[in-house]
């Protein structure tokens, strides 16, 4: 065991794992965090807490993670390289692990030009691959990046993200391999809609044996409406929403679109359960935390197994 987190235990026991996601509020509204966490309690192994997602300022991820721990949930602390240099990243992971955080997801982060403060200076002292390497070093060698000893080393289950749908496609599995080489213990993918492309991605991943070195969780985000599908297809860079997804949603009554979106997510999860190399699913029900249970339950994944 690297960190002994619930997520790590579940995956190493060979169970098909389920993670959720929670975006902290744009303020210090603790109740909001507790409220959203309530929907996810008991239905997922751990919950990703986003870090200034889409470069919009929100309650610090580590703080929201601590609130989840106090509520009896396990967080995955997301960390982006956009807002902090290596000093702050290392300091924050020491602080986070001191508070009981065990899972971390290392990300580059969306560029701030999209976000709430586009005029800000960005950092990118490290990139996501280097961040993984830094945390692996802190955990395994008990040293800072400068090779000086730590007074207390973090125990971490290291996560990375992978977007099978970004370009150039032929390099995507290589980049995943780099993240694994740098230290990723688990990987969560971008939301998947193009199943054909994902199958191809997983085939290449399995061919390289990467699924044996790292747990891969397939990303699922239910479509709430045709509007959301069209928006994601058009405006979210690196998102691949095939026309067939939009058409299927268009094929049902407007009031039924959300239910159809959930049905589609469930069908996807059923396929992931059988897909070689896929160790679990990451259910990102964005601002829809209260519907996550329907999806997970619908996919026959409740109750969650208990591991020790």
């Amino acid at each position: 065991m690297k960190a002994g987190s619930n997520l790590e235990k579940m995956l190493s026991a060979g169970h098909f794992a389920v993670t959720g996601e929670l975006g902290p509020p744009q303020g210090n509204n603790v109740e909001e965090v507790r409220h959203k966490a309530g929907f996810l309690k008991g239905i997922v192994e751990s919950v990703n807490i986003t870090d200034n997602q889409t470069a919009v300022v929100r309650m610090a991820s580590w703080a929201a993670c601590k609130i989840l721990i106090d509520e009896g949930l396990e967080p995955n602390y997301q960390m982006v390289c956009r807002d902090r240099n290596r000093l702050a990243l290392m300091a924050d992971i020491l602080g986070a692990t001191a508070l009981g955080i065990k899972n971390v997801l290392c990300l580059s982060g969306d560029h701030q030009r999209f976000g709430s403060h586009p005029e800000s200076k960005n950092v990118y002292d490290l990139d996501s691959v280097q961040l993984l390497a830094a945390f692996k070093k802190m955990r395994d060698e008990k040293k800072f990046l400068n090779d000086k000893d730590l007074d207390g080393a973090p125990e971490l289950f290291l996560g990375a993200a992978s977007n099978p749908f970004a370009d150039p496609f032929e390099f995507r599995v290589t980049r995943l391999a780099k993240k694994i080489a740098a230290g990723a213990d688990f990987v969560q993918t971008q939301c998947i809609y193009n199943m054909d492309k994902f199958r191809e991605f997983m085939k290449q991943t399995v061919d390289r044996g990467l699924h044996e070195k790292c747990y891969i969780l397939a990303g699922v985000t239910p479509m709430k409406s045709v509007g959301m599908a069209k928006y994601m297809a058009k405006f979210v860079p690196g998102m691949d929403v095939p026309e067939s997804v939009v058409k299927r949603l268009q094929g049902v009554d407007k009031k039924q679109q959300a239910a159809e979106g959930i049905k589609m997510a469930i069908e996807q999860i059923e396929e992931f359960k059988e897909m070689e190399g896929v160790a679990g699913v990451h259910v990102m029900a964005i601002e829809w935390e209260h519907r996550a249970k329907e999806i997970i339950e619908g996919a026959g994944l409740l109750p969650r197994p208990v591991v020790d």
């Binding site: 960005n122 370009d167 971008q190």
Partner: peptide, 19 residues
């Protein structure tokens, strides 16, 4: 845009940057 030494990030689409 992110000075990544181990890119490309997940925002690379059709040869263009996410920004």
């Amino acid at each position: 845009s992110k000075s990544l030494m181990n890119g490309p990030c997940g925002g690379s689409a059709s040869g263009n940057c996410e920004i």
